Amino acid sequence: AAIEQQMSMTGASMFWLDALQDCKLDQSLSLPFDRYRLSNEHRTGRGTTISSDFGQDLSHDFLIHASSNNISLEQLALATYYVFLFKLTNGENDLCIGINTHGRYRDELNSIIGMFVNAIPLRCQLDPHLSFHKFTKRVQNNMINCMKYSYFPLQRILNQHPNISNPVFLDTSLEFISYKSNNAIMIGDSQLVPAPFPFNMNEDERL
């Protein structure tokens, strides 16, 4: 708490107010769905993860593109995700999604035990006429700026928009997890790779 009091809340407040100006935080993206979900439907917090393998060639090109353009894998994945959402929504060019940050924005917090995760909005005003290279650089700069002020609590960001009753932008999010594993199991043409979970689940919560 003492460390947070030392952070510039005024600068962070001004940044988020400007970044989300005229952003429709309570408007859902027109994404395809398999069933209609009621706005007041009770949520259990459970979900299903579906993974797909890009293949060795595409994965290699992804790594090379990130390295040669001096952009992180997470930033490149975010830019690709925005383009994917742009196509799914038939050209929606003002996209806002949620992303969880680790919250340890200062070295002093790295050795402290506790939950520091903070969700922040990441807005992208996509120009379809930009080249992908220029677009990824724009996404990179935007993400760097947002992470700089990621310590600003989500609730205080939402308080800047009192007319927003339901921040549905949090329904669409991106979580980038990078890990290495040498325990791949081949079954026919399929490869199974164990993925670590950053949290614990009870037996009755597993799907």
Results as ranks from 00 to 15, higher is better:
Ile144Tyr: 01
Asn142Gly: 09
Leu130Asn: 10
Ile113Trp: 12
Ile112Leu: 15
Cys124Tyr: 07
Arg106Pro: 11
Ser111His: 14
Thr136Trp: 01
Val139Asn: 00
Glu108Asp: 13
Ile144Asn: 01
Lys137Trp: 01
Tyr105Ile: 15
Tyr105Cys: 14
Arg123Ser: 04
Phe132Cys: 01
Lys137Gln: 11
Lys148Cys: 05
Cys146Asp: 01
Tyr105Glu: 14
Met147Ile: 01
Ser150Arg: 02
Ser131Tyr: 01
His133Ile: 12
Ile144Arg: 06
Ser131Glu: 07
Leu126Thr: 00
Ser131Gln: 08
Arg138Asn: 11
Arg138Tyr: 07
Asp127Lys: 03
His129Ile: 11
Met147Lys: 09
Pro128His: 02
Arg138Trp: 00
Asn145Cys: 07
Pro121Asp: 05
Val139Gly: 04
Ser131Ala: 01
Phe132Leu: 11
Asp107Cys: 15
Leu122Thr: 07
Gln125Ala: 09
Ala119Tyr: 08
Phe135Thr: 05
Ile120Tyr: 02
Phe132Glu: 03
Asn145Leu: 07
Ile120Asp: 06
Asn141Gly: 07
Gln140Ser: 13
Met147His: 00
Arg123Trp: 06
His129Cys: 13
Lys148Ser: 10
Asn141Gln: 09
Ile144Lys: 10
Tyr149Ile: 02
Leu122Ala: 05
Phe116Glu: 10
Thr136Leu: 10
Cys124Ala: 13
Ile112Phe: 14
Ile112Asn: 14
Gln125Val: 10
Asn142Glu: 04
Ile113Glu: 12
Thr136Gln: 09
Asn118Gly: 05
Gln125Tyr: 02
Met115Leu: 15
Phe116Pro: 08
Leu109Cys: 15
Gln125Pro: 01
Val139Cys: 05
Val139Ala: 06
Met147Asp: 02
Tyr105Gly: 08
Met143Glu: 01
Tyr149Phe: 05
Phe132Ser: 07
Cys124Thr: 04
Cys124Asp: 00
Met147Pro: 08
Thr136Pro: 00
Phe135Trp: 12
Lys148Pro: 00
Gln125Thr: 08
Cys124Gln: 08
Asp127Ile: 04
Ala119Val: 14
Val117Lys: 00
Asn110Trp: 15
Ile113Gln: 13
Thr136Met: 12
Ile112Gly: 14
Gly114Leu: 11
Met143Leu: 05
Ala119His: 11
Lys134Asp: 15
Tyr149Leu: 03
Gln125Asn: 10
Phe132Gln: 09
Ile113Asp: 13
Leu130Glu: 09
Gln140Glu: 07
Ile113Ala: 13
Val139Phe: 04
Lys148Asp: 06
Leu126Phe: 07
Phe132Tyr: 10
Ala119Trp: 10
Met143Tyr: 01
Ser150His: 08
Asn145Asp: 13
Ile144Phe: 06
Asn110Phe: 15
Phe116Tyr: 11
Leu130Gly: 10
Leu122Met: 11
Lys137Ala: 09
Asn142Phe: 02
Asn118Val: 01
Met115Asn: 14
Met143Phe: 06
Asn110Cys: 13
Gln140His: 12
Ile144Met: 00
Asn145Gln: 14
Lys137Arg: 13
Gly114Ile: 08
Lys134Leu: 12
Leu130Cys: 04
Lys137Asp: 09
Val117Ser: 02
Asn141Met: 03
